[in-house]
Design a protein around this nucleic acid. Structure first.
Lengths: 192, 192
DNA sequence: AACGAAACCTACCGCGTTACAGGTAACGGG
DNA sequence: CCCGTTACCTGTAACGCGGTAGGTTTCGTT
């Protein structure tokens, strides 16, 4: 079983799948998961709905692929984050409304009964809180204002990021997301 | 035009409408607005879908009624809020997951294109930010930590409330929503 | 050149959705 | 007692949805 050109087909298939996932991200941003139709995603990559089902046998399978992509996306810098990089991330996000909108819509839907992304988000947030607590500890040690521990502060940090995103998506001109986030970080920088 | 019993019919009708709105709140909490079918709402109040349309001519009209109810709901204490009442509100919310879930799901959906609740939330958040800024000013004056102004702090306050709600809805056991919110308030209480 | 698999497409099914049309029974006011 | 309004219901139109079945073309391998 030679590899040489057998890979070509595989690579092309993988590229097509990635293309589809990208389109799905867009459509979900515009309509949410429930509102996103396979046909709309398919059209965006020049396929019929049934053609799309050749790559992802069900709508849920496509969603799983979307979520997996997301994991991969920020798994890279997850190794060692620092507070200032976090601020940069928010700034970066402010230039990519699409991605934010996708996952804000998804997060909102996920609190709904029987939503296929619910488990994903539950796990993810638990993980993110832990990760943020670690970041806070390496940055500030246990010397956070008001006797707060990193573990108790982490949910706040995450909440601020998410909450600001919603306000910003609804009214970008009224909310300076990166600025507000820096304000919050400054609040944590204060010595008790 | 005598009022006496003419009111009876009107009252009964109004009660029915309120009943329907209540059912709609539930169904939206469970499935979101897009996922909520008129038939499901109707069934919950013992009507057919067409019977429901007698009270609300379109699905969107029903949503508008739901949002109006919400406005009325917290318009009462909006006259004069204080920080400690805010903490109590969060505590109260923690005992009513249903309502929170309804509006968290709705907020998530609303960032989506052409969602009928988008305008509502945009206006509302602008208003809430103003209101919160006023609360912060009466509580702390302009003496917030780190030279923050009430206007710059308000978005953070709102973001924390919303963000905590999502984390809490996804994993109630892992997140102490009222406690975390108090932590945040304590952060603001620190003198610069 | 032949073959087998991958990459699509057409056709179709069954269901759920909002909304419209029109009918009917109850009920309250004159 | 009549009559108009209110409060529903049945029937149905029109459409979009996810998913299945099965065929056909394309293409790399042998």
């Amino acid at each position: 079983m030679p590899y040489g050109d057998a890979m070509n087909a595989r690579v092309r298939s993988e590229e097509r799948r990635a293309e589809i996932v990208r389109a799905a991200l867009e459509v979900i941003a515009e309509r949410g998961y429930r509102g996103a139709s396979l046909a709309a995603v398919a059209e965006r990559v020049g396929l019929t709905q049934q053609g799309l089902l050749h790559y992802f046998p069900t709508k849920e399978a496509l969603l799983v692929a979307v979520l997996k992509e997301r994991d991969q996306w920020d798994a890279v810098p997850a190794t060692r984050w620092r507070i200032d990089l976090l601020a940069s991330l928010v700034e970066y996000n402010a230039m990519r409304p699409g991605i934010i909108q996708t996952f804000s819509a998804l997060l909102g839907e996920s609190v709904t009964e029987g939503h296929p992304a619910r488990g994903y988000f539950t796990d993810r947030y638990r993980q993110v809180r832990e990760s943020m607590a670690a970041v806070l500890r390496t940055e500030y040690g246990d010397r956070l204002p008001n006797g707060l521990t990193p573990e108790r502060t982490a949910p706040l940090l995450v909440a601020v990021m998410d909450g600001l995103q919603y306000q910003w998506l609804l009214d970008p001109d009224a909310v300076d997301m990166p600025g507000a986030f820096r304000d919050f970080l400054a609040l944590l920088g204060e010595e008790a």
